[in-house]
Nucleic acid binder design. Structure first.
Lengths: 155, 155
DNA sequence: CCCGTATTCATACTTTAGTACCAATCTGTA
DNA sequence: TACAGATTGGTACTAAAGTATGAATACGGG
């Protein structure tokens, strides 16, 4: 990938090179290059171009940052049952009162407690509970609780 | 941070430089450097040291590794109770048999069913259940089920 | 207005759950 | 070995749950 920045750097390098060449030419005519000064001359050029190369490379490399993305999985345990399984609930075809009774039943309340909570007689609760058992296809309140939790039809 | 690798590179660079200097010296004495050949000579040195500098820089700097950790939230709807709340369970101080009975009780089984399942008499189950109620501070099996589910001490 | 369903309540009964008290056996620990 | 706790089982009793049946009332749709 040759970005606009790279091209700019290459152009800059070209300009620097040109300037140096002209400087050398000028030095060649103006100052006499002595025979024993060639070493120093060559050394200066070597150092200069080495530094230039290093600087160039650093500039170019700076844009080449290797980014490693590590996806850290955070497991969120959604334990609480927020939603009621409406589908299963409708299948049972429970009446409003029966569902009310079921909700209190699953909370561990006795028939007497449910009766006083709903301002009804124990007889009425027993009737509702019996009808519940038939509709839910269970034989005891404990089974009703187990099935309710399993089908997720209560909170 | 100057690693052993960096030192090796610097030494290599020194050696290259020394070799080049000697080569130049050799050329200086062996082949006559013509006046108009100085440009070519300087150019070669410039190119060589630029490449050397780039190479050096690349070796020293290498690629910068930027590590970005992205936390990805994964919601796992863990409906089923995978782990038992051991802390709450130990608080209740239930015996092994009592816990066995509790597990079957919460599944909606009757005393008779639990008895036949564990090859025990109904009397024994009644005793265990009564002791369970005292330890769990409840008054009925439905309350025991509710509390067990709430404290997450059963599967 | 009639019909089906929901809701309420009652009585009588059976079954199950739960309590109280006792006792034998087993088991790990001081 | 003695002892506390666990496990098993029994009897007798009370309380609650569950079944069966009947009946009155309310309420919405055809």
């Amino acid at each position: 990938m040759t970005s606009r920045k790279d091209i700019r750097h290459i152009l800059l390098y070209g300009v620097c090179l040109a300037v140096l060449i002209f400087t050398l030419k000028w030095l060649q005519w103006k100052v006499l290059i002595l025979d024993n000064a060639v070493d120093v001359y060559v050394g200066l050029i070597a150092v200069f171009f080495t530094v230039l190369g290093v600087w160039m490379a650093r500039q170019l490399v700076r844009t080449r940052v290797k980014t490693i993305v590590i996806e850290k999985e955070i497991i969120i345990n959604n334990t609480e049952q927020a939603t009621v399984n409406e589908t299963e609930l409708k299948k049972l075809n429970l009446s409003a009162r029966e569902y009310e009774v079921l909700q209190l039943l699953t909370k561990g309340h006795s028939n007497a407690e449910i009766a006083s909570h709903l301002y009804l007689s124990v007889s009425t609760i027993k009737t509702h509970v019996s009808n519940l058992f038939v509709k839910m296809d269970v034989k005891s309140r404990t089974q009703a609780i187990e099935k309710s939790k399993r089908l997720k039809i209560i909170h």
